[in-house]
Design a protein around this nucleic acid. Structure first.
Lengths: 208, 208
DNA sequence: TTCTACAGACGAACACTGTTCGCGTCAAGT
DNA sequence: ACTTGACGCGAACAGTGTTCGTCTGTAGAA
């Protein structure tokens, strides 16, 4: 089930429709409801399978910060590697699948090793998970050609045109940041965010 | 157009279908395509209208940090106030609507007042926007009854059952964080995240 | 071995979505 | 007043997730 399913996930989440999966199994869509009660449930199973591969580090208090970063990066890598799965992570309200729980526990352990109390670690882990999902979702977009380049540049033009149509002092900064948003700076953006997160966490831990 | 549209947005984004909007205008769905080329374009217009109401502060270097927090909060409030609009913010790859540009500019101005250079401000603004969208999306979920309480508790049970079925040392932290995730702590989670962000930004600005 | 009963698989249909085609109508130009 | 043009929009198309009721294959009883 999940196997025939993952095969489809490799050709895009949009292609994962009940009919398409059923077709892969040479049957009709109704048959799937014997194994899965929902399409959402099926999506959750896929996400769980994807996240299961993320390595969970043993906390080392000496370099917990680097471990936190790496865990976030690994989570993002896993999601981006499976076309479109990041979208699934978003409309799952409460993640209860085993992989998410184990990842959550791993993250909490790292954060506590960094000197945060349980409540702080919980909130920090929540924020980090949120960012990981968010970045993975965006990264998925331009990693797989789901946003066509022409459309983006066209919208870029349109945007510049609007900003230039207003008094020059309206957008002193926005008019100059175009260069920072190329595809090459994506990784850099992630690293900056991680730096920011950990600097903040260290400051909070130091207050304790 | 947008007016009759916002009226519908107030009864949920799910209700905003081409047919439903057309019905409100006492016509058929095809007529809408004379004013809007896409449903996505219509969604963008809605988002733009919602974000237009967010007040954009004049940067005050003395309290730029508080201003950043407030801008994020305001953005979140605006989105959560309009049922389901946060979902729209997510699958817009490149936001080019006027409101987003003005908000972006405002955020950049605040961050630069905090001592960040243009590149740092850009990346920080991106991360903050990401978080705002993410939090607003989640908050929308439980603000409007889009996640029914029984389902959540049921999944909670299922999750606890799984964790207890494994050796006790598998989940030393996760088993104890349930209390931190009630609906009452949501605002607290946001404040923690904002604190973390600004502590990080100050640390980065201090390095310059 | 034969008959029965039950559970599971699944074909066809339903209700719904966004979008397009082309007809009909109405207003403006000569 | 007649023709011409454009534009609003009704009906249909190609999809989607999900359900209902039939039909089959198998396991257990006689």
């Amino acid at each position: 089930m999940k196997t025939a399913l993952e095969v489809l996930a490799k050709e895009g989440l949009d292609a994962v429709t009940m009919r398409r999966v059923a077709q892969e199994l040479e049957t009709g869509p109704a048959s799937l409801y014997a194994h899965v009660s929902n399409k959402d449930e099926l999506a959750e199973l896929m996400l769980d399978a994807v996240l299961a591969d993320v390595p969970r580090p043993e906390p080392d208090p000496a370099r917990w910060d680097e471990q936190v970063k790496e865990l976030v990066r690994a989570q993002i890598r896993a999601m981006v590697a499976h076309r479109g799965i990041a979208r699934v992570a978003w409309h799952i309200a409460v993640p209860v699948n085993p992989s998410s729980l184990h990842l959550g526990e791993a993250m909490l352990a790292l954060l506590r090793a960094g000197g945060l109390d349980l409540k702080q670690a919980t909130f920090a882990g929540d924020a980090l998970a949120l960012y990981a999902k968010a970045y993975a979702y965006e990264a998925s977009g331009w990693t797989w050609g789901e946003i066509d380049e022409t459309d983006v540049t066209e919208r870029g033009e349109q945007m510049m045109a609007y900003m230039r149509s207003l008094p020059a002092e309206s957008f002193p900064n926005m008019l100059r940041i175009g260069e920072f948003f190329s595809a090459e700076t994506a990784a850099e953006r992630l690293e900056f965010a991680l730096d920011m997160y950990l600097a903040g966490l260290k400051a909070i831990a130091a207050r304790n």
